[in-house]
Design a protein around this nucleic acid. Structure first.
Length: 1152
RNA sequence: GCCCUGGUGGCGGAAUCGGUAGACGCGCAGGACUUAAAAUCCUGUUUGCAGUAAUGCGAGUACGGGUUCAAUUCCCGUCUGGGGCACCA
């Protein structure tokens, strides 16, 4: 063997070593995991990536390395470790890329996925790739669709607090109607079993839809014209789309939703048991936004005429507005009774009147004056009465009632129970006719409203401040605004509403301090005092939160206070001296004053007392409110999971529904099978009316298109597919379950597998998913748990958030000269970066002072120096030699090179080496392709090896904080690995490991290291593990230790961090099997505890001496030794010790 | 505005339960080996004062207070970086 070859063999040749073992591990399938139930399990998961076209940068693998170290460590400790990886492959960027280039998203996704896979493999993660999931794979999304169907076929039982099959709800309806199951979508909905039985199938399904967990509804959604899609609230940032920054607007669209609000309370309360960071839990809590309080109803007072100033009784002859408030409450509770116990006919009619079905808003059991008519359309002043037996017996009274109502401008039409039940269509026709006639009657809008017709419900978290209410505010979009606005105020209100509409979301948010509003002209009545309360509208009240209306307490709320001051509304002080008239007292200390029976009570007590009083008077109830909204689940997009839904005559059905499959299987057998595959398309333009691109594929959408005989039942119309697709978070809401049993064709995951693997023990990922993915995944888990498919209701036991690795961007001054054929930027020395703006901005002026002829065409003070991090020196200087090196490396031809370098205006001085340079400016910012500061892990791995890369990423700092990447520091870690190697092998002598007995000192170093590494991994402190390895290797080198007894355990300990070098050394030590399957060494207590300690001895807290004592020394012995110590005596200055403190193993302190 | 987090040398960071602040690494300075380079190794490196030196004395963990024998660590206030939510009643 030649000397050279020998040297080559014994050097740390990481390239050769890493290539060899990668191949070996792959051939041996060492990372394959079985569902082996004899070992304890450990499930370690990374957030799977969206494979973007840009590839991985060094920031991405940070979390993967951490989880990989943990996974390998757990495996060495005898756990069966599930550590899988996959791809979140559906999503908007692939589709946008497709729009731009015409490449099919499946193609780009496949390419990107392959690239990611290659980059990940380069770093040697212990992923079991046989379990890879890909959300865009039909074998995977088949089960996404299946889970969606389970949600579609479920409702949330508020009494049992869990999801249940919808079939059980149907049974309940058949037995008792919905008296015991409040409808989450419409609390006023009520029907009995007879009515349920009489519903048409469509009515029944409409009703069920209001209960389903995955449901369809109309809603205002964010519509983005540029993207041609609707966006979730969390995809809209600062009034523009998160992706692309396009403008968005509100649009009413038919959408699928997940009823996540039903889970709000459970999502909130079970956070307590999770091992997540406080910041993360807090973000979820804020997002769910639970607040306790009360809902309070304020009835509307008779209108007051403007200008006269005094209270005018609109219906003075009855004098109701001066009556006891209890009278209103009496009527209120009567109304509630009627509303909750409708007759069969009333229910049937209501099903046809509600929700603007006839184009007009109807209300049930709405109080008008003294009466409570069955149905009323306020805008047309049309009353529909249903006469049952009770009404027969009181014809006289009915007549009086009609007379009264007609006097008020109402038209009353009556139907009998029989008419309605027998021929509802006829009844509806008559009502429709009345509406049309009356809608054209202009007089209607001019009649003022009377007392009791309308009430305004508000939500408040401070019922204790009820006596401080000085006005009320409705959101400008509130449905009552039209109803209550008086004629006098109509113009002003219209103008104000136009103004609000004209304001962009951005303006509204940036001008929070701006106080605007408009008085409606109407007054409400305080439910406890009967006081007149003016009702205003203002944009500071949001339509989407609570009831869209507030009771304003200016003495206790800053915004209310600002509003009152701005509009000169008198302020009632309910906080005594704590309110000074200048600033609202919004703290929650002290007592409530000037508040009738609440006066003198603490806020907590007053809250309870106020709620009790409101409940007793029927004007309020205890209420919990959430900020959380139901999750929009539709996208008008192509690259996502198609819905397993078909419309039969416009009614949505799950494709797995039995009656449906029977009818349809004859015509088109395969449609009942999942998955509903995403069809290939030619282009990705949105379909008509903002529908998704799928709507353009007629053959696919219209299932009866090719087969004229296909129909569902008799005369039920077309059978059409849903053309929306599911949102990005659909596939990621359950992927952690699929890894447990990835090839199962008959279930999303077998129960045996999910029972074995259970929750994810460690979930590693960024904070950016705090309220999106993590919340949805938790909800899906709870739903699947409720329905009995899995045995746990929280997916991620421990969550570890890795910080971001930022990039270093360099900036330099540049100028571009005319003539324009020289359009390349000239780099300017530092002094020219600070050229006076005047000089520099005179573009087009001759620029002779730079020693250049011609004209300045463009000057930029802070230009990005592209990829500056690759060649700038340690003092942030662009040096000629480094820049030249870089340009050559980039393949710039030599002649061009000189020309390029001539253009640079260097600083006057040179570097220490005599190099020309320009001083640059460095900034730390997000690593991103567009900022030209990305560092590709492939390059680092090429240059230093995967082991060095892995260890360096860990060494950078704590895993959970963000820090800038700086390639310069990597040398230290690389040197460490070389030093480690030299404990085993020498360039000259070759393999130098001996079988000598280890000394006590060597064993101490080893065992302390083992203990520290184990402790550090368990608490995810990987940076300190790396430094401990460095200390260990430094110490062993110092002792010249090359002993197997020490190095063998050390090899295993290093393995989780640097698996390649560990495997190489392990085999060189003579082992045949992989080090990956070894056992992590156990430390021995006797080697980690010292038997003596060098104590710092302090006098009055200042360390004055060091003294060594055995650990088991008597305190009295130590005291006498210390007090007789020369230096200590000197510092005690002859005084008597007041106190002697001796903390065993820590320190000694003498107090004088 | 509210909530959560941080602030320690030239830099990344360490100090895990209140007990010797600055581990480990980078950078920098000096040196050894070498014809040279690479690689490797050694020494120094918070700061002020005194001393040729070993060393000694003092200050010091954003700032100001407090608790304690003892505070980077606990408490109060202020300033400030980062993240989240945001007219949320």
């Amino acid at each position: 063997m030649s000397k050279r070859a020998f040297l080559y063999y014994m050097e740390y040749d990481f390239r050769q070593i890493e290539a060899n073992w990668k191949k070996y591990w792959n051939d041996q399938q060492v990372y394959k995991v079985t569902n082996d139930t004899t070992k304890p399990k450990c499930y370690i998961l990374d957030m799977f990536p969206y494979p973007s076209g840009a590839g991985l940068h060094v920031g991405h693998p940070l979390g993967y390395i951490a989880s990989d170290i943990y996974a390998r460590y757990k495996r060495l400790n005898g756990y069966n470790v599930l550590h899988p990886m996959g791809f979140d492959a559906f999503g908007l960027p692939a589709e946008q890329y497709a729009l731009e280039t015409g490449q099919h998203p499946s193609v780009t996704t496949k390419n990107n996925t392959a690239r990611y896979r290659e980059q990940l493999d380069n770093i040697s993660f212990s992923f079991d790739w046989s379990r890879e999931v890909n959300t865009s794979d039909p074998k995977y999304y088949k089960w996404t669709q299946w889970i969606f169907l389970q949600l579609f076929h479920s409702w949330y039982d508020r009494k049992e607090n869990k999801a249940r099959p919808i079939t059980e709800l149907v049974k309940i309806f058949e037995q008792e109607g919905n008296v015991n199951v409040e409808c989450p979508a419409d609390e006023t909905l009520s029907f009995d079993k007879v009515q349920w039985a009489d519903f048409s199938e469509q009515q029944q399904r409409d009703t069920l839809m209001q209960y389903r967990i995955a449901y369809q509804g109309f809603a205002q959604v964010w519509w983005c014209e540029a993207l041609g899609t609707v966006l979730a609230n969390d995809e809209v940032v600062n009034g523009v789309s998160e992706r692309g920054g396009h403008p968005v607007e509100r649009k009413n669209m038919r959408q699928w939703f997940l009823r996540i609000t039903e889970y709000a309370d459970r999502l909130m309360s079970s956070l307590d048991n999770l091992d997540w960071s406080d910041a993360m839990k807090e973000m979820q809590r804020n997002w769910i936004g639970k607040s306790n309080g009360a809902e309070v109803r304020f009835d509307l007072s008779p209108a007051l005429s403007e200008g006269e100033g005094d209270v005018v009784q609109a219906h003075g002859k009855e004098g109701w507005n001066t009556a006891e408030p209890s009278l209103y409450n009496l009527i209120g509770s009567l109304r509630k009774d009627l509303k909750n116990n409708p007759t069969e006919a009333e229910s049937i009619l209501w099903q046809r009147l509600k929700a603007n079905q006839l184009g007009f808003k109807f209300r049930r059991q709405h109080i008008i004056g003294r009466f409570v008519p069955d149905f009323v359309c306020l805008s047309c002043k049309l009353i529909v009465e249903v006469d049952g037996k009770i009404h027969e017996q009181q014809k006289e009274e009915d007549a009086a009632r009609t007379e009264y109502l007609e006097e008020k401008g109402y038209k009353v039409v009556r139907f009998t129970n029989e008419e309605i039940i027998a021929n509802i269509d006829n009844v509806i026709d008559q009502i429709r006719q009345q509406l049309t006639t009356r809608a054209q009657n202009e007089d209607l809008s001019n009649t003022s409203l009377s007392f009791g017709e309308v009430s305004i419900s508000v939500f408040t978290t401070r019922p204790d401040t009820i006596f401080g209410v000085d006005f009320m505010v409705l959101a400008p979009e509130h449905e009552l605004v039209d109803v209550i606005t008086t004629d006098v105020q109509k113009t002003a209100i219209d103008e104000y509403r136009t103004y609000v509409k004209s304001r962009s979301e951005r303006e509204r948010m940036s001008e929070v301090k701006l106080v605007t509003g408009c008085f409606t002209g109407s007054y409400a009545i305080h439910p406890l005092t009967g006081k007149q309360i003016p009702v205003w509208i203002s944009e500071y009240v949001l339509a989407g939160y609570g009831t869209g209306a507030i009771m304003a307490v200016p003495s206790g709320d800053d915004r209310d206070h600002a509003f009152a001051k701005h509009f000169n509304i008198p302020v009632t002080n309910i906080f005594g001296e704590r309110y000074n008239g200048e600033k609202a007292y919004s703290e929650k200390n002290g007592t409530i004053e000037n508040s009738d029976f609440l006066s003198g009570k603490s806020i907590a007590d007053a809250n309870e007392a106020a709620i009790s009083a409101l409940v007793a008077s029927g004007a309020g109830k205890r209420k919990v409110n959430y900020k959380l909204r139901d999750a929009g689940f539709s996208r008008q997009r192509y690259w996502g999971e198609p819905f397993p839904i078909v419309y039969v005559g416009g009614v949505p059905y799950g494709i797995d529904e039995k009656d449906l499959s029977l009818s349809l299987s004859e015509g088109e057998g395969e449609m009942t099978q999942l998955p509903v595959e995403l069809p290939m398309v030619e282009h990705y333009k949105p379909g008509p009316e903002g529908q998704g691109p799928l709507a353009n594929i007629i053959d696919w959408v219209n299932m009866g298109h090719n087969n004229a005989s296909l129909s569902f039942g008799e005369g039920r119309g077309e059978v059409l597919r849903e053309t929306n697709t599911m949102p990005g978070y659909a596939g990621s809401s359950w992927y952690f379950l699929r890894y447990m049993d990835p090839h199962n064709d008959t279930e999303f995951a077998g129960r045996a597998a999910t029972d074995y693997w259970q929750q994810v023990d460690l979930y590693v990922g960024g904070t950016e998913h705090a309220v999106g993915h993590l919340l949805y995944a938790r909800m899906w888990t709870k739903a699947l748990y409720d329905l009995g498919y899995i045995g746990f209701d929280e997916p991620f036991k421990k969550l570890l958030n890795q910080g971001m690795i930022q990039g270093q961007s360099y900036f330099i001054g540049t100028a571009i000269w005319q003539p324009k054929d020289l359009i390349k930027p000239v780099f300017l020395k530092k002094s020219y970066r600070n050229i006076g703006k005047n000089e520099a901005s005179v573009e087009g002026e001759p620029y002779s002072f730079l020693g250049k002829e011609g004209m300045l065409w463009k000057y930029q003070e802070n230009s990005r120096l592209r990829y500056g991090h690759l060649f700038v020196d340690t003092k942030d200087r662009l040096t000629e030699s480094k820049y030249r090196e870089y340009l050559i490396y980039q393949g710039v031809a030599t002649d061009v090179l000189d020309e390029l370098l001539c253009e640079v205006l260097w600083e006057e001085q040179t570097t220490e080496e005599g190099d020309k340079y320009i001083q640059c400016k460095m900034e730390v910012e997000k690593m991103s392709k567009s900022k030209y500061n990305v560092v590709n892990p492939d390059d680092i791995v090429n240059q230093y090896g995967a082991d060095t890369f892995r260890m360096y990423e860990m060494f950078l700092g704590p895993i959970d904080v963000s820090k800038p990447w700086d390639t310069k520091g990597i040398e230290g870690v690389h040197r460490f690995l070389k030093k480690l190697w030299r404990l085993y092998a020498d360039d000259q002598k070759g393999w130098i490991v001996t079988d000598e007995k280890a000394t006590d000192a060597e064993l101490r170093i080893l065992h302390k290291t083992i203990k520290k590494i184990a402790d550090d991994i368990e608490r995810f402190s990987f940076n300190t593990s790396v430094s401990q390895f460095m200390i260990c290797v430094n110490d062993l080198s110092g002792l010249n230790c090359h002993k197997r007894e020490i190095l063998e355990p050390l090899t295993i300990a290093v393995c989780p961090f640097a698996p390649h070098i560990a495997e190489e050394l392990w085999h060189k030590l003579g082992h045949e099997s992989s080090v990956i399957n070894a056992s992590f060494p156990k430390y021995e207590e006797k080697y980690v505890t010292d038997n003596s300690k060098v104590y710092p001895v302090a006098v009055n807290g200042k360390t004055r001496a060091e003294m060594e004592f055995p650990l088991d020394a008597e305190a009295s012995f130590i005291q006498s030794e210390v007090l007789s110590h020369e230096a200590i005596q000197k510092w005690m200055e002859g005084k008597e010790p007041k106190k002697f403190i001796y903390v065993k193993g820590k320190m000694i302190n003498v107090v004088v």
